[in-house]
Design a protein around this nucleic acid. Sequence first.
DNA 1: TTCGGGGTGAAGAAAATCTTTCAGAAACAT
DNA 2: ATGTTTCTGAAAGATTTTCTTCACCCCGAA
Lengths: 290, 290
Amino acid sequence: MTDESQTIAERLQTAFDTLTRAERQLADTLLQNYPVTGLASITHLAKAADVSTPTVVRMVQKLGFSGFPEFQSALRGELEARISDPITKRDTWVHSAPEGHILNRFTDAVIGNIHQSLTQIDLDTFERACVLLADPDRRVFVAGGRITHALAEYLFLHMQVLRAGVTHVHAMSSTWAHDLLDLRAGDVVVIFDVRRYENSTLKLAELARDRGARIILLTDQWRSPVHEFADCTFCGRIVVPSAWDSLVTLMLMAEALVAEVQERTWNSTRARMQDLEGMFDRTRLFRKFT
Amino acid sequence: MTDESQTIAERLQTAFDTLTRAERQLADTLLQNYPVTGLASITHLAKAADVSTPTVVRMVQKLGFSGFPEFQSALRGELEARISDPITKRDTWVHSAPEGHILNRFTDAVIGNIHQSLTQIDLDTFERACVLLADPDRRVFVAGGRITHALAEYLFLHMQVLRAGVTHVHAMSSTWAHDLLDLRAGDVVVIFDVRRYENSTLKLAELARDRGARIILLTDQWRSPVHEFADCTFCGRIVVPSAWDSLVTLMLMAEALVAEVQERTWNSTRARMQDLEGMFDRTRLFRKFT
DNA sequence: TTCGGGGTGAAGAAAATCTTTCAGAAACAT
DNA sequence: ATGTTTCTGAAAGATTTTCTTCACCCCGAA
């Protein structure tokens, strides 16, 4: 079949000598703003190069393709590689493992998830979320569902150190209504909700919204229905080669939020953290060294 | 006609709420390796997204295009602009953010952590850990410290579905001794411990080892002292541009373990999961769709 | 001038692609 | 549980694209 070792652009240049006048004109147009022109229909391409469609077919066949569609498909493949290359370097991750080992497939998927989710994140949303979380006058409630409540707790543990007035709510337990009893207008509710979206979480969001709370939602690519009520929504891809979903992307976002809120509240946080250190020292909870 | 001020990717996200299930599936595929997938024929695209071609047409019309060819043409135009723009070279994650934005720096660091940790992982260790966790004759205890206990709970929640005899232990609470009362020789204790390493976690590990338990340790690059007692140790880099550490790498490893254990125990797990599904259906805890 | 050989594009045939219709299916509300 | 609304894909029709054929043209040689 076709030689896969060079790009189509290279092949065009290599073969340039063997091309006829109209074909060179065409090759030139193709290289002009490579590869976009070649991705249109053969008709458009022919018109753009001011040659006829048979010329196009003849040329791509000279290059070794069976026809125009195959040529175009190769172009797309090349483009895909070019676009995703700097990100998803197809290095095998675990060197000792075969290419298709679960660790490598899994990691590839996670990196892809992170890449895609982060490129699509809205900067303004991030800023607003940080402002809300850094505001000492608003209390913060962190809520998660069956699986996500572990992640909610993770965020809670950090926020608790950064500021006062942080509460962890189990959306799935029957007690969440009590936890939200003293929710005031202006308070912030951080909600984790991924498929399968939980009814109680939606109820919780609705109630919070009715009370005038601001809602920050961390969800998956399909967006939990809570989104309707949310002021800030963050979507993270969660699909991996597993029967389960991966919350790694959401964790990354949560950590980034913590990092930025910490930055903004550093003045007040410093004292809190030193207090905490002191308490830890007294209780000898941690090892001094190693 | 169509609004030229946003990219198609942005429009897809904006309109995401107004899309139906199949259309979201399609939008997701489109964004997956944007924009290459959209440059193939409508037939290919439909097949790739596992929807019908009418769905594709309906969606692009919702986005404001008269039909698929116009949509595709817009994609090409966008691609042309993107390719001819040299700024594309930069490796930023969040396109709308400046290079040094916290989100980009943070993500860079996390990806670096993952990369480095995963290349160094020992495949044999991974295999052994999976064998231990998949063995129904061994009970499993999952323990974490002050911050890591959220991660421990995350692993616990998954393991609990996969198999019987799983317990979550709070290494930091004063009750962990009780939780380990009926620990038998051969049981498995999964321990999360990152800096600053906790005394109680070390004690827990020591006791477990004395009782003849097998220990799987997930720790940071500097290795918790628990390592002395562990049968399998996984080290993940945790350093990010923040006052805090990032547990993303450890979470990834935990998820990979779950995925592989699930694979190995599929026969017995399937029944458990179906039971669970049935219970959820009856209790209507989850929403059907959207 | 006439002849031959390759190059070229018009036109039509073949094959897809794209669009529309419509009936069944699924989710939601009552 | 039942009815209503909305969504979905099979199938068929409309359109476009792709490919092939073939006549024409240009150019150099006899």
